[in-house]
Design a protein around this nucleic acid. Sequence first.
DNA 1: CGGGCGCTCTCCCTTTTGGGAGATGTCACG
DNA 2: CGTGACATCTCCCAAAAGGGAGAGCGCCCG
Lengths: 212, 212
Amino acid sequence: MTLSRQSESIRILTVDDHQLLREGIAAVLESQSDMVLVAQATNGHEAVEAFRRLRPDVTLMDLRMPDMSGIEAITTIRAEFPEARIVVLTTYAGDAQAAAALKAGASGYLLKNLVRKELLETIRAVHSGKRRVPPEIATEIAEHVADDELTAREIEVLRRVAAGKSNKLIAAELDISEGTVKTHMKSILPKLAAADRTHAVTIALKRGILDL
Amino acid sequence: MTLSRQSESIRILTVDDHQLLREGIAAVLESQSDMVLVAQATNGHEAVEAFRRLRPDVTLMDLRMPDMSGIEAITTIRAEFPEARIVVLTTYAGDAQAAAALKAGASGYLLKNLVRKELLETIRAVHSGKRRVPPEIATEIAEHVADDELTAREIEVLRRVAAGKSNKLIAAELDISEGTVKTHMKSILPKLAAADRTHAVTIALKRGILDL
DNA sequence: CGGGCGCTCTCCCTTTTGGGAGATGTCACG
DNA sequence: CGTGACATCTCCCAAAAGGGAGAGCGCCCG
């Protein structure tokens, strides 16, 4: 019977640093005869390690965690196991985060305010090879696919702008001329459709391009 | 027996728009013989309504919720029932949020990454009339008690600054002179120890003075 | 009722930011 | 090997932000 259960049940790994939420997921999964929670992890490192050991069918992964972020964990896992089915389960952190998770190989992106039914439906859908992204999120991502993304250097500059640094100071820190920092700003503002540097920072925070 | 249980058990209300988290709390509480979950609410309005009806001994309340925020709910409940014991259970949103919740009458402030033990210990402590604020949060609040707080007008100005508006535009919106907006900025920057308007916005976001 | 705080306003001066228009070197990808 | 994307740099100019100092007005609290 153990054998038959194994072959029929969806084996699940949860990754979240909120113990209470993991307990909630565990309680929901317990009520399902075709699902079994095989392990829990509290950060990206543990998630990768647990995945290697157990090869769960579906992984539910938060993005914001200590030590190693969810995105890194997804990337690492998918590099080793391209068939891994990973569903992001997180508080909404902007379209850029969601897009990055999907690019890294996530099969779904759920928000923590979901109801049990959505969770269960998504686990089954993803297990059977489908992708699941709720319409609200898909819409937000779609709104920005046409946009040029910020380059790594631009993000580096914007991060310092958020810290209240002047162009001159940023130039000194990055060892480039102030003029170049200005050039980067002149590239950043239209990309984010921002009126000024302050607006650029709040937009980047909203969209998950920068963290607080 | 029902009578004796009622007189001994701590009657608990949970308020959070995350169903999964509520399930987790429910699972934890179920394992305790001296606690009983009497109701759950998903926003501030429902919380107030449920509190009036059931008069729980301890209420676990999130802050960020649709319709009515946790702070408003706490204020409303404590106005009617000054003896209400309310514990905030939320993702950390800055010292200003925490301080506001405690000012509104919360008896505790827990973070969602807590472990069961802390939750249970806090519920018992608060039920017996104690206050419980974890040291990390107490420290952060303490760091800013000496600071001047922003006035309502200053927050109004800063909110518009965050939206990328120029002093001139803000002046027009608030129907005051640009000079006055500048005067407000000159008051805001030192209060937040910010280098410029952009920094002021990120600090205000971190500290929970502004929302994204 | 007097003082303090918050909100408002003004003047002046310096520094910073943002916009426009080019130009060069490098590296990667097809 | 070319073409494009990226990062770098320069020059110019107008607009905005920031810093300092002073002052009037209303309202609430002691």
